[in-house]
Each structure stands twice: as structure tokens, then as C-alpha cells.
Amino acid sequence: MTESATTERDLQDQPPQLVPLNAIFATDFVQILVPVTTANTIREVAAAVAHHVEGKRVRALAYEKVVFHRGRRLPPELTVAEAGIVPHDHVRVEYDLPKGAK
């Protein structure tokens, strides 16, 4: 068995762990601490971050939200564990705006 297959199985066998994240949403000026778990999907992370900001300090828009971690855009179906996000990492959540939209 390869090392990566072992690692994937090990991640699936573990109960979800708390992962507090430092996050910023779109054009917000406040960084927030958001609790998620290793089992949450990236789509769920985006929703958790937006929940604290969207419609409060940042105008809500009817677009999907995307998460960036260490400069890369994360696929929404990945889990926090699969994405390699660890406690106190920084994530940025943005609207997935079509080209030319503001």
C-alpha cells in the first residue's frame, strides 16, 4: 500500500477534529476566527465564514463562494483535512464573480 493511500484511510478513520481558522470574507476589513472541523467541506467553510459577515459588513451577492488557502483556490468538495488546512491557518473567502462583474 502506498503512503498516500494509508494517509487517506487514516483521515477517514479519525473522528472530526476542531480546526479554528483565521478568515476574511470578500471586502470585509475584519479578520474573524471561525470554528470548523476536519470533516467540513470547503463549501461548508465558505458558508461558515460568510455567516458572520455577509449582509452585515459585506453586501450579500447571489454568487457562489470560493475559498483560497495559501494562494490556491480549493475545490468545494474537498474536506478541511484533505485540503491540508490546520488550526489557525488563514483562509480567504470570495464571491465567484463572472469576468467583468463587480
Rank of each mutant, 00 (worst) to 15 (best):
K99C: 00
E44W: 08
R73Q: 03
E44D: 10
K65L: 15
L33K: 14
E77T: 08
N40S: 08
Q17N: 01
V93N: 02
P15Q: 10
A48R: 14
R92Q: 14
H52P: 00
R57M: 08
H52T: 11
L21K: 07
R72V: 09
V34P: 00
F29E: 15
T38W: 13
P35N: 15
A101P: 00
Y95R: 04
A46Y: 06
K102I: 04
R92N: 14
L97M: 09
L33S: 14
I85S: 07
R70Q: 11
Q17G: 04
E82N: 09
T7C: 00
V67T: 09
Q14C: 05
G84S: 11
I85L: 11
I42F: 08
P16W: 10
L18K: 05
V45L: 03
E8R: 11
E3T: 12
V80M: 03
E3L: 12
E64I: 03
P35G: 06
V49T: 05
Q14N: 06
S4V: 14
T2K: 05
A60C: 01
E54Q: 12
G71W: 03
A60I: 02
K99N: 00
I24P: 00
T79I: 09
A60R: 12
R73K: 10
E82R: 13
I42H: 01
G55I: 15
L11K: 11
A23Q: 02
V49N: 02
V36G: 04
A5G: 01
V53Y: 01
E77P: 00
E8V: 14
D96Q: 07
E82A: 15
R70H: 12
D13K: 15
T41E: 07
R43K: 14
A5T: 09
P15S: 10
E77C: 05
V80K: 02
P20T: 12
G84Q: 05
V34T: 15
A81P: 04
K65R: 15
E8Y: 03
F25D: 07
H51Q: 15
T41I: 10
A39T: 09
R9S: 12
K56S: 12
I85M: 11
E77L: 05
Q12E: 15
T2F: 03
Q17I: 11
K56F: 13
A60Y: 09
P76H: 05
A47R: 06
E54L: 08
R43W: 06
V36R: 03
R70A: 10
G71S: 03
P15V: 13
L33H: 12
A81H: 08
E82Q: 15
T6K: 08
L78C: 08
E3Q: 13
D10P: 00
P35C: 09
R73F: 00
P20A: 13
T6A: 10
A62R: 11
A50L: 10
V53A: 07
E77R: 04
P20K: 06
A48P: 00
